[in-house]
Nucleic acid binder design. Sequence first.
DNA 1: GTATATGCAAAGTATTTGCATTAGG
DNA 2: CCTAATGCAAATACTTTGCATATAC
Lengths: 149, 149
Amino acid sequence: MPTGIHRSRLRDHFRALLQLNHLRVTPERLIVFDEICSLQTHFDADDILARLKQRHAAISRATVYRTIELLEKYGVIRRSKLTGVKSHFELTLERRHHEHMICTSCGKVIEFESKGIESIQQVICREYHFTMTYHYLHIFGICDDCAKR
Amino acid sequence: MPTGIHRSRLRDHFRALLQLNHLRVTPERLIVFDEICSLQTHFDADDILARLKQRHAAISRATVYRTIELLEKYGVIRRSKLTGVKSHFELTLERRHHEHMICTSCGKVIEFESKGIESIQQVICREYHFTMTYHYLHIFGICDDCAKR
DNA sequence: GTATATGCAAAGTATTTGCATTAGG
DNA sequence: CCTAATGCAAATACTTTGCATATAC
């Protein structure tokens, strides 16, 4: 899915993604997708189920799981197991790809971009015959301000 | 726990950690800890159970889970945000740094090293006056085998 | 001796799946 | 039409927990 898409056009892109992959555009899929897009944070399957219930959209648990699986497979959302038990997901609508540098002392997050890392990744993925959908680089350490203290 | 400890001394450090925290040094804990140290990759609870069984060490599932929880709590292992339903862990010391490539279809994790990424990071950290303690690069996508299906 | 750790089995969550039914292309 | 998608309920996977027993200190 392309980056930097305006919210109102997301649904059209999802529809296109389904059609391109010979998958059916069902109301259930569109509703689950809309719900995920409306979330501004990480979510898990139950979050979606709860919000659907609140909206009186009777979509089954199985369909929610299956739609999440589909979205992950096509790189629309990504899984990150934050807690010990459930899987958490996040929409991959990166405005522009960036990496994170996290200060373990004050918690500050510095975002940066690196052409070099992107190209190294391409080389590595080719070497392993791996088709990348997304990546993230997290650098942990001590920021300038904290080092001075 | 200090880093860069020789393998044979790891057990002593674990023992000290337990004593310092008024926890009991039980054979079960030592065996589970040794097993984790002997692994060269990330692992999950079942990996440990399977290896223990193979070694005819009859340690219960509950104890393995409880020991893993303890080790995570004291920072000896860390939960890594990989894919799938299980929780994966990694020893926080003694490992040579490596990156992860995760197949979002089958869950396979490919580890690799990259000198290039290391050096780019050094440049970036210098630019931001950031003192790195550790980092991880996760590349998500579809592996060769899954792409063929 | 006493409190903590273990083992077992049962309970608790999260997720997946088989199958009959529905509906998109 | 035909096949993929849905809903339901049952199955499975992973993890936690209550309790009696064992054991480290």
